[in-house]
Design a protein around this nucleic acid. Structure first.
Lengths: 237, 237
DNA sequence: AGAGTCAGCTGCTCTAACCAACTGAGCTAG
DNA sequence: CTAGCTCAGTTGGTTAGAGCAGCTGACTCT
């Protein structure tokens, strides 16, 4: 009964003191006294809050208000997807479809409304993709940056974070599961098409470009049947 | 160093044994032996996993694989929003805009493609809203059901869960913050307009209807300045 | 046969001690 | 005098052992 309360009380403490991300929290002994609980209980509450990204604990240094990022959501989504995958569900496909549904809806909203600066940045990213594809390097990070920059035009930080979280979860699960990598050249071409469509202001074409991009990923996905987790080493779940 | 590992190893255990939601996990003593850690460390790991919704702990009964719902995400989003609000940010507005952006994008996709059964269900929900509005009752739950049923037509369970999570987070924060309630009659009319638009298959009109609905909520929001959290009792953060 | 009780599991909380990472003051060598 | 080291003190990390609290199921008494 006390445990759930402790978490709430620590959260309330953060709210009441208007603590911002990175602000120091009381030390464990101080919290023990303030909350009237044993060290053990305080630590369990902090661990739970840490898992939710509300608190950040640094060994030998102190406890701080966390970055409030969506990292825990990524963690949860990724685990849920991996677990479902190994139990024979098409959870990874669902995650991809989630991204597709949301992104196709959003991209039409920003066709023709992107600031020129962002368009130039996207140009540079696609160029880098080209260069990486030519060298045979992976372009995961560039792909992530492309999608992140694209939706920055919607001017909603939270929205961008959510989309990045979806990207992260999907990417992490796919690499964990040893999915077949994309053909870099095709991926490149598709990103350029998305960018061109958005620049031209043609919503329909932008939607179609996004849909084709995801269709490509989806095709690669369906060729990767569930594997035995024991066969893989050093797995991150 | 062991703590992070413990969580990973317990997750791996779930994956490796193909445990589904609700399946029983080893007891604490068993986990202690299996993982070679003390009771305390095992418990801290379990607490963290519980916070992520991966594990469910029932006092005097046992530990089970969690429902893998997005409840932790709601928790995190809600806290992040409340904390931001009290620190003067327009975090609640951002959350609303996130919902608006995603839902406007999605509603156009299902205009004219909804199964008749879902449309009838939505009819019933709007009727119930009317009835509740007439009695002066709150229609939060019905509103939630309306949005949930609406996007069920997209045939992606994960997507629906995400949207419901956004709804829950927003609703919870707004009630915690004591926001001004909507005018039930207006809300009702707007939901009926959304439904009509979707039924008619007119994507543009559906988008516009959703936008107007959110615009209404937004208007109510901006009249509610941040309050002092100490002034409110029994606050759920 | 049915209701109450108790023994046994389970997780929950506390105390007390020690380990490990980091900081900063003070000391030593150059 | 300064650069670097060392060490004491702080913080979180881990372990151990004891007792509390909720739940189940079998056993007993009516």
């Amino acid at each position: 009964m006390a445990a759930r309360d402790l978490q709430e009380r620590i959260k309330k403490l953060i709210i009441d003191r208007r603590l911002a991300s990175g602000a120091p929290l009381p030390t464990e002994p101080e919290l023990m006294e303030h909350l009237g609980a044993s060290r053990n209980s305080v630590r369990e509450a902090l661990k739970a809050l840490q898992a939710m990204g509300i608190v950040e604990i640094r060994h030998g240094f102190g406890t701080y208000v966390g970055p409030m990022s969506l990292a825990p959501m990524i963690e949860g989504l990724a685990f849920r997807t991996v677990a479902g995958h190994y139990r024979g569900e098409d959870s990874l496909l669902q995650l991809l479809e989630l991204r597709e549904a949301v992104e196709t809806g959003l991209v039409s909203r920003l066709a023709g409304r992107m600031p020129e600066a962002d368009l130039l940045e996207l140009d540079a990213l696609v160029d880098r993709m080209d260069e990486q594809a030519a060298r045979g390097a992976g372009l995961a990070e560039t792909d992530r940056a492309f999608h992140a920059t694209l939706y920055r035009g919607l001017d909603n930080v939270l929205l961008c974070e959510v989309l990045e979280a979806f990207w992260d979860a999907f990417h992490r699960v796919r690499t964990d599961l040893g999915g077949e990598p994309q053909d870099p050249k095709v991926t490149c071409r598709q990103h350029r098409e998305i960018l061109d469509a958005v620049r031209s202001g043609d919503s329909m074409r932008a939607e179609e470009a996004i849909r084709e991009h995801f269709g490509n990923i989806r095709a690669r996905l369906s060729t990767t049947p569930p594997q035995d987790p024991h066969a893989r080493h050093n797995e991150r779940v």
